[in-house]
């Protein structure tokens, strides 16, 4: 697995593109799969009377072979599209946002942003079809020089923005509590150090007083 999480970190949710965008690609493949039948139908309609035969054997089996070879290529492309769709994802953990962008099979970009660096989360639905199907884009603005995180065509972008904001709030809350407990521990440590030093001073002072008393007694005795 390429993405490793810390021991105290877990995935809150994963976001992928809306299934409708993937369906468009599959529809294109389905159309290409039935395209040979359309071509045959058009040839039959044409006013030419001709037949096709093969020198090496029965042409009917050649048609079957050609069609299934064509289907095999489309099948592979279908999986290619699906893999691209599946791997293009946002993973929101308790500590960070991981953006995995897959471009084809051999190019992948992984960007990570710590949740405390996120400044603004914005959702956007634009167009008739996205409004009907309820999908759109989410923009995450980060502090500093880092690029804007953008995921296109996610389902229910408003809900995802809300969930992301909740994850951010939880992270910030946990961060504040951790900071406070650290401060408290530091204060305790300082206090105990001060107590120790005070005790040392007292001990030192007592030792000096004892020594002075002894000296006085010795002088009086002499």
């Amino acid at each position: 697995m390429i993405i490793k999480l810390d021991n105290d970190e877990h995935v809150v949710f994963e976001v992928r593109k809306h299934w409708f965008t993937f369906t468009l690609e599959i529809t294109l493949l389905a159309f290409l799969a039935i395209l040979p039948f359309f071509i045959i139908a058009i040839i039959k309609i044409l006013p030419f009377d001709f037949s096709i035969s093969a020198t090496g054997g029965n042409i009917f089996y050649f048609y079957i072979f050609s069609y299934f070879a064509w289907t095999s290529i489309l099948w592979i492309f279908g999986f290619l599209f699906w893999t691209d769709y599946y791997l293009d994802t946002w993973i929101i953990t308790t500590k960070k946002l991981i953006d995995v962008e897959q471009h084809g099979l051999f190019r992948r970009e992984i960007s990570i942003i710590q949740l405390d660096k996120i400044q603004d989360v914005k959702s956007e639905i634009r167009g008739i079809v996205p409004t009907i199907m309820n999908y759109g884009d989410i923009h995450v603005q980060s502090a500093g020089q880092q690029k804007e995180f953008l995921i296109h065509n996610v389902p229910k972008p408003d809900q995802i923005r809300q969930k992301l904001n909740e994850a951010l709030s939880k992270y910030k809350m946990a961060y504040v509590i951790k900071e406070q407990s650290n401060n408290f521990e530091n204060m305790n440590q300082n206090f105990s150090e001060q107590n120790n030093s005070q005790a040392n001073l007292n001990q030192f002072a007592n030792t000096n007083i004892d020594q002075n008393e002894n000296n006085n007694q010795t002088q009086n005795f002499s």
């Binding site: 093969a54 042409i59 095999s72």
Partner: peptide, 28 residues
């Protein structure tokens, strides 16, 4: 002239195509 089109197809070429497709399937 299009009364009968005879395509020069050999079974060897088809077997070869099938073999290439099987290799592509395995690689993919």
């Amino acid at each position: 002239n299009l009364k009968n089109i005879e395509l020069p197809i050999s079974s060897g070429a088809m077997w070869m195509t099938l073999l290439i497709l099987i290799i592509v399937f395995v690689i993919m």
